[in-house]
Design a protein around this nucleic acid. Structure first.
Lengths: 190, 190, 190, 190
DNA sequence: GATGAATGAGTGTTCATTCAT
DNA sequence: CATGAATGAACACTCATTCAT
């Protein structure tokens, strides 16, 4: 009984992610999601207050998975550059293996729905990384600039490069990923 | 016969940009655009084949303006680093002065509509910049890496930093812009 | 869940027939049908795929009722002429008592929608009558001419005479109906 | 100058007939007619009060041509049966050579627009034929029955047989037309 | 918990017609 | 005479959501 419910909810989330990937946020209707998840539209309203709630919850779910993947193998005691490089490579691996999740997050983040998410709620999942960066600054390994600027050269280039939408021609193999990391590191290192 | 009223078309484009900024692509309907532009919904179809055509045409219009602004004062003979810095600063100035246009472009680019735009059509407006980068590589001023990777460290960080959506806390003054450029330059320079 | 309300579907069909009678196929819109049937326009799409489906389904429904009425009291063993006369009179009685259904069928048949109906689907309801005619030919009671020609002198004159649109001045009483049948019989008999 | 106008009006009528044939009355809009006639929608309103006026006028025009064709070679002094046979054959020839005009008339007649046409206006074109029938009755060559009944066995079977919509399988050659006339004649003759 | 029926309000688009030129 | 721009109203259809079961 309990299991069945969870299956339904998971089916709904999966359907939402896939459908947004296939047809985009704009064309993504509740009934289409329901059909893809093999449930009634009404069932959706048992688990979520409304469409907005469904989309936002799905986004948070996706972000959790992303942060988990990115921080996989995270070890505070490793050399600073290695921590970052691991993070960087984790990122590319995640996108490669979870294209749909990544694309959903991208589309959501640039939609007005994103304003409904509490930034703190998201940030907390990436806290270890933030702390590492702060330590890097203190230890004078990386430049002492606002966090947003650092992020603009570590996280966003990665997301843009991994995004097949913005980078159509580039082949993402171990080599290009490493080369790209070199640039990121040069950007932030002291 | 009545002459096509150029003001009407401009009003439609402006209304489209503003409305997408206010309520987002997802909620942006033809009738809402028409109302905001003070024309009949039917009038819209005199100037555009359909909604898609309107959104795409508006996007291309916006991109043209952006490229023009970014390449403002462009001078091939200037030192390489200065060309880039000018470009960088132009970008921030444009976003600051044209928040709505920028946000429209951002939302459009991450929507599935973006697939309807011929990439070459857009690229041609930025050609001078691309050529400069190629020359930079040849002259061994910047790293010899794929163009997409260079872009990921010059154009995208700028757009992310300028985007109030992704960078809520950072204050963009002359200083931070210059600091940020330092990182971009360090990333790509040889 | 709510059970499908059979009354609603019947109300929709009835409204469709009546409205086509009142204002004609050309002016017959989905919202007008919905209003006449006292349901929401959206409800219509629960029962029918689209407007076309509604109109075609209604037509087939009407044709079924017509064939049933025409073949009422049909008895293979009766004399050939009597079978035909019964059929003839059934036709006039049906039209007299079901003007709306008949007019709907007429309008539909001459509209381009008619091409969407499988002719075999309709013919099967009139099969007994077709077989009788074939027997009549074999027994040399009626002329040995193509079926379409026979039909043109038995079925169509009846429909034209019964149609108040084409026959405005003629009063259709028992006498005129009988007289008309005399002509039909003279046309086909050997 | 004057000639040009007539050309335009003729183009409009022709476009109307063709378009109704192609897409049916229901889908036939003023702007589509205008486009097919290579004129502005506004031009249409110079020649006709409104859409209804255009359709009705076109119908009357078509009917005139039909009556002219049917009465071609009409000769009061010929034997009664021959007059009728000529009329019958003229009918089939006309339909064969003017499918579009015939189909337009059929669609129009069964649409509610038909009620806007003054029946007397149409009847007057067929007056010679009506007079012949009356004479036939007086001379006791054909049955003394209401005119509508006679018509139902001379005019309507012809139209049904000639109509490719109702008679899909029958091949209309000289032979079948003659055979069919035999039935018509048997129906009405005394 | 789960459903499909039901809906008013909305969607993008086309309509018949008028207007200024 | 002839035009294409312009439009409010209507079009067929889908929406997010609720309801009775």
């Amino acid at each position: 009984m309990r299991i069945k419910d969870i299956n339904k909810q998971e089916a709904i989330i999966e359907a939402t992610v896939l459908l947004v990937n296939e047809i985009g946020f704009v064309s993504c209707s509740v009934s289409k999601i329901a059909k893809k998840a093999n449930v009634s539209p009404a069932t959706l309203y048992i688990y979520y207050k409304n469409k907005e709630d469904l989309l936002v919850s799905t986004y948070i779910e996706v972000k959790k998975k992303m942060s988990k993947a990115l921080l996989n193998g995270f070890d505070d005691s490793m050399p600073f550059r290695d921590i970052l490089e691991k993070f960087w490579k984790n990122g590319f691996r995640f996108v490669k293996n979870n294209k749909a999740l990544f694309q959903y997050a991208e589309q959501f983040a640039s939609s007005p729905f994103s304003e409904l998410v509490n930034p703190a709620e998201l940030e907390k999942h990436f806290e270890p990384m933030i702390k590492v960066l702060q330590k890097g600054i203190e230890q004078k390994v990386i430049k002492d600039v606002p966090f947003d600027i650092l992020a603009a050269f570590i996280f966003y280039p990665m997301m843009n490069l991994a995004n097949s939408k913005t980078c159509k021609s580039l082949e993402l193999n171990d080599n290009t990923i490493e080369v790209a990391f070199k640039l990121a590191w040069d950007a932030i290192k002291l």
